[in-house]
């Protein structure tokens, strides 16, 4: 069996993802409340629709901020080797990707409001055919990795 990559992403990732999940919870909660209001005023909507919605919402409130970020973080691993980038992610379906350094076209770091709040950044690696992301690295580490990859990728590339 091939070993998974060695490095984990920053542990603050869990917090950042949790915060994101909380923000997104606004949508199902709003829909549920909306459904209750509609049920009150419109006759032909059965009481069961908002009840089902509220159950789903409660499950969502528990699962998305408290369970998923942790599982996701535990699975997320990466490793930058001289010749390749090796990434693993996915909760139920585990994806392992290998990107040869010579195929890397450019690397970016990016940072949204939530990530910058935790001093995190996302590293994006683009080849001619694919895009890969390593989310939520510590800022300085993301910058270092970006420079390292662009250094390593600066080999003679085949003309495509």
């Amino acid at each position: 069996m091939r070993q998974p990559p060695k490095h984990r992403i920053a542990e603050e990732a869990i917090k950042a993802w949790r915060l994101t999940a909380f923000l997104f919870l606004f949508i199902p909660i709003a829909i549920t409340i909306g459904a209750f209001i509609l049920e009150h005023f419109v006759d032909f909507i059965s009481i069961w629709i908002p009840i089902i919605l509220i159950i789903v919402t409660i499950i969502d409130v528990i699962v998305t901020p408290f369970v998923i970020p942790k599982l996701r973080w535990r699975r997320w691993k990466y490793e930058i080797l001289d010749q390749e980038i090796y990434i693993q992610h996915g909760i139920l379906i585990v994806t392992q990707s290998v990107i040869p350094m010579a195929r890397v076209q450019h690397v970016d770091t990016k940072q949204g409001l939530i990530l910058s709040n935790y001093q995190l950044a996302t590293l994006t690696i683009t080849t001619a055919a694919t895009t890969h992301e390593i989310p939520a690295l510590r800022e300085e580490e993301a910058a270092n990795l970006r420079d390292l990859i662009s250094e390593l990728a600066r080999v003679e590339q085949d003309d495509v």
Partner: peptide, 16 residues
């Protein structure tokens, strides 16, 4: 081999 941009594997726990 020099035209391969990336390779990837996927598995879930049954696969595992």
């Amino acid at each position: 081999s020099k035209r391969i941009q990336a390779i990837e594997t996927k598995h879930h726990f049954l696969h595992h």
